[in-house]
């Protein structure tokens, strides 16, 4: 990554994250097809809901005939961590028009958020609409095409995991986490490691009694609070 914020650089910066969307998108398409939904429905889900884990939940709850309100509410809860990410990101686009802000928010993902946070460390703490919108757009298109591809391929592939593609997303989070740690000079490395270790404990303990998708939100809320407290107490 470098300090440039043009479209060409955005494409270059976003490329590594594309594998994550392809892996999970294809998996989603296959799962959706296997649950009995036709490729059009799968496609509409990816276009309109556009949320990895939440879409898996929508599919399984639809297939098990859950009431509509509980499906919508579950989707909201699973995805509500986006509130935190949007809140963190929004100040960087304060000078842009409202419609540009809405567009950035509409296509924001875990990955484009993480990518943007990383970029800040190289760009002198600035983001541009063009850069972010390009990153978002590539992600959105890749997600739509891969999930449709998965739904169409669904008849032929029964075991998408064999290729190791499902690890692309995890590998990406590992990479982005490490790159964030080494490039963020505002927070000391020791504090970062303490917060990450605390996050591991929270995840482990939380998994015992809190459903995984809700857990990410709760852990994020608690982990950030822990970070602030430790920072003010010891750093």
């Amino acid at each position: 990554m470098d300090e440039k914020l043009d479209i060409h650089t955005a494409i270059k910066d976003t490329l590594p994250t594309v594998f994550g969307y392809i892996g999970i998108g294809i998996a989603f398409g296959i799962v959706g097809k296997a649950a009995g939904f036709n490729p059009l429905i799968v496609l509409l889900m990816s276009i309109l809901i556009y949320a990895g884990s939440a879409q898996f939940i929508t599919v399984s709850m639809l297939a098990s005939h859950s009431p509509i309100l509980s499906i919508v509410f579950s989707t909201f809860l699973v995805n509500s961590r986006m509130l935190l990410m949007s809140m963190t990101l929004a100040p960087y686009f304060k000078k842009e028009s409202l419609s540009k802000n809405i567009l950035i928010g509409t296509l924001l993902t875990d990955e484009s958020f993480a990518l943007g946070m990383n970029k800040l460390n190289y760009s002198g703490n600035k983001l541009s609409f063009r850069w972010f919108n390009t990153a978002n757009g590539i992600s959105y298109l890749t997600w739509i095409i891969s999930s449709l591809g998965g739904a169409l391929l669904g008849n032929f592939i029964t075991n998408p995991e064999k290729l190791g593609l499902d690890f692309a997303l995890v590998a990406m989070f590992i990479g982005l986490l490490y790159l964030q740690m080494i490039s963020d000079n505002a927070t000391s490395t020791l504090l970062q490691i303490i917060v990450i270790a605390f996050t591991l404990i929270l995840i482990y303990v939380g998994l015992i009694f809190i459903p995984g998708n809700l857990l990410i939100l709760l852990v994020t809320l608690l982990g950030c609070g822990f970070g602030v407290v430790i920072k003010h107490a010891f750093f």
Partner: peptide, 15 residues
Amino acid sequence: LSFVPIVIMSALWFS
């Protein structure tokens, strides 16, 4: 909020 990136990414990894 400055802790959101590292906490979210490590939470997604650890889970």
